[in-house]
C-alpha cells in the first residue's frame, strides 16, 4: 500500500580517518520525492544534509502547528558509541487550503540538517543506514519511505551544500527584533517598522482561535488569539518571520512563557 523504495544507494568509499570538510552523497527516489544525503565530516563531528527534492506542486510538512499531514522523519541505525542531534529545519511557508485548512509546508526542496557524533575512538569505514519517511501531498497525499546508507568517511566535495543548508536554518530571534506581550487571551507581537509578520507556532502549545486568520499580517503588529480553557497558559513556542521595509526577510525561533 505504501510507496516504498528500499533501493538505498551508497556512494563514495573512504579510508580510516574522518577528513575535514569531506563530503559524501547517497540518493534514492520515488515519484513525488527524491531523497539524497550529503555529509561533511571533521575530526569529531559529522553533519548530514538530508535533501528532499519535490516534484512540481508537491509539498512536505514542517514540524509546526498544522491541520493535516505529518513532517518527514529520519530513523538512524547508529553504530555503537555514536549519537545524533535533532533534525534542524529551514523556514517553511504557509499553505491555506479551502475550508480554512492551514499547513506549514515546503515546496520544491527541503534540506534538513543533522549532526552526528562519533565515538572518540572511531576509525575506519563506517556505514550508517537511515530510513527516511514522509508524507508528500499535492491534490492527493502519498506516504513514502526509503533507506539510504551513509558511508563514512566521505571522500568528495560537497561541503558547500551542507554549509548552505546549515545557513538556512533559523536561529533564535534576537530579543531586540520583536516584543511579545502575553495577555489573558492573546499574544501580541510587535516588531517596530516591519512591513509584515508571520508567526508559525510549534505543534505543542496553547489552543488558538484561528491561526489561519491570525498567523500573518501586513504591518508591524500581530495578535494571536488564544482559546480559553485548560492549556491556554501553556508556553507558546515557534518561529517568527519578519518582512522588513527594505524587502529583506529575517526569522528566528522564540518562546513566550
Amino acid at each position: 500500500m505504501f510507496v516504498r523504495n528500499l533501493a538505498g544507494v551508497a556512494l563514495l568509499l573512504g579510508l580510516c580517518q574522518f577528513l575535514p570538510a569531506a563530503a559524501s552523497r547517497a540518493a534514492a527516489a520515488s515519484n513525488a520525492v527524491t531523497v539524497s544525503a550529503q555529509v561533511v565530516a571533521s575530526a569529531d563531528s559529522v553533519v548530514v544534509a538530508w535533501r528532499f527534492d519535490l516534484a512540481e506542486r508537491w509539498h512536505l510538512y514542517a514540524p509546526y502547528c498544522n491541520d493535516s499531514g505529518f513532517p518527514p522523519s529520519v530513523r538512524l541505525d547508529l553504530p555503537a558509541g555514536w549519537s545524533a542531534g535533532p533534525l534542524r529545519w529551514p523556514v517553511p511557508e504557509r499553505l491555506v487550503l479551502p475550508g480554512g485548512i492551514l499547513d506549514h509546508v515546503y515546496h520544491d526542496e527541503l534540506v534538513l540538517v543533522q549532526s552526528l557524533h562519533p565515538p572518540r575512538a572511531a576509525a575506519g569505514r563506517t556505514a550508517i543506514p537511515a530510513t527516511l519517511s514522509w508524507l508528500a501531498c499535492r491534490q492527493t497525499c502519498v506516504p513514502g519511505d526509503t533507506t539510504l546508507t551513509l558511508i563514512l568517511p566521505p571522500a568528495d566535495g560537497g561541503a558547500d551544500a551542507v554549509l548552505a543548508a546549515e545557513a538556512a536554518i533559523p536561529g533564535r530571534l534576537p530579543p531586540a527584533s520583536a516584543r511579545f506581550v502575553r495577555g489573558a487571551s492573546t499574544v501580541r507581537v510587535r516588531a517596530p517598522g516591519a512591513r509584515g509578520l508571520t508567526l508559525i507556532p510549534a505543534a505543542d502549545g496553547p489552543a488558538l482561535v484561528d491561526l489561519a486568520a491570525d498567523g500573518t499580517v501586513r504591518g508591524d503588529e500581530l495578535v494571536l488569539r488564544l482559546r480559553p480553557g485548560a492549556g491556554a497558559s501553556a508556553p507558546l513556542r515557534g518561529l517568527l518571520i519578519i518582512d522588513h521595509t527594505n524587502g529583506a526577510r529575517s526569522s528566528g525561533s522564540f518562546v513566550v512563557p
Binding site: 502547528c65 498544522n66 491541520d67 480554512g100 492551514l102 507556532p201 505543534a203 505543542d204 502549545g205 496553547p206 489552543a207 488558538l208 482561535v209 484561528d210 491561526l211 489561519a212 482559546r227 485548560a230 492549556g231 501553556a234
Partner: peptide
C-alpha cells in the same frame, strides 16, 4: 498527565469544540 494531554491537544482547531 492531564496537563500534558491538554498541551498536545493544540492549536488551530476552528469549528466546534467539546
Amino acid at each position: 498527565s492531564t496537563l500534558a494531554l491538554l498541551l498536545v491537544a493544540a492549536a488551530a482547531l476552528a469549528g466546534v469544540v467539546p
